[in-house]
Design a binder for these strands. Structure first.
Lengths: 164, 164
DNA sequence: CCGCCCTGGGTGACATGTCAACCAACGGGG
DNA sequence: CCCCGTTGGTTGACATGTCACCCAGGGCGG
């Protein structure tokens, strides 16, 4: 009561509340469908998939761990755990980094390459079906601008950024 | 090669790829910020929060478990586990259901009510700052339509729906 | 060359989510 | 009234993510 002279919070209007709930539900459903689909059709998870995407985008299929972390925007701890699992599944390998004794490289294996090549077409197809097909060209443009706006607003945000 | 006569997949155009990546990143950042914020400022998680929202929306703060599951669109198993944790933390209680011997009610405790009342204002404020403030009124309208479109497209989708 | 701090990365304990199997109460057909 | 499939809900094993802490190599001032 006395600590912050905070005025009545700016609650959401009914229209805003509708958007927020719809948006949350849309994200959740989209995530769930994509995750389940890729898991069932291929033998890899979405997380595996996004790691492999970076690996195939890069010359020699070889990246430093921290660069991966930045590309995916994952915490290094999460990445470390996940990479360990992926090694166990034979999707990637690790290699020492001669330039920096602390560092280590991640490289994609043949099995990894096969896995993502098998998964990608069906995944893209579903992204198209669920996400792009229902939208008009205009809406695609609009959504691009909207996403950029929101993303931009978060970039300079003072909120908890553990390690940027 | 021979099993499916599938034509070359409809890969994403550069513009589409840009949208997709931006959209994914935006969602991820938004989630992360909201989750971390609510966790640090209050003593509850986003998951706790969304359960409590339903509980406070309902007369007597009492709901059947399955109704909760439908409202949140969570799998019943996830909900069951989560409710158990929330009971342990004193946020909710359970009560027998006299009408149906199998069922059980969930009800919010005083501590739960206090927790969500403390968390809500700051949470809404952040949703506003990160999500609504950067958008124009027009964009809010556009995003509402877009979300509804995508959501609609998923509703009749034959993809894996474990228990709808 | 040394002490110190920073940086890249890993680890363990724990919170959370998923899948599949289980179980008891319902409830309708014979 | 009983059998049996369905429904509401829980459980255990396991996959994943988070936090806090550890640790070795690098690099700089003295």
């Amino acid at each position: 009561m006395t600590t912050t002279p905070q005025t009545e919070p700016r609650w959401l209007s009914p229209a805003e509340q509708h958007l927020w709930r719809t948006f949350l539900r849309m994200r959740q459903q989209l995530d769930a469908q994509l995750a389940r689909h890729i898991q069932l059709e291929s033998d890899i998870s979405i997380a595996d998939f996004s790691v492999l995407v970076v690996l195939t985008d890069v010359p020699e299929g070889r990246v430093r761990v921290l660069e991966l972390a930045r590309g995916l925007q994952w915490e290094k701890s999460r990445l470390s755990h996940h990479l360990a699992r992926m090694v166990k599944r034979g999707l990637i390998e690790r290699a020492e980094c001669s330039e920096d004794g602390r560092g280590s490289f991640v490289l994609i294996t043949d099995a990894g390459r096969r896995a993502i090549e098998a998964a990608a077409p069906r995944h893209v197809e579903l992204v198209r079906t669920l996400f792009f097909d229902p939208l008009s060209e205009e809406q695609v443009t609009q959504l691009t601008q909207i996403s950029e706006r929101i993303l931009g607003a978060m970039e300079g945000c003072p909120e908890a950024l553990p390690e940027s």
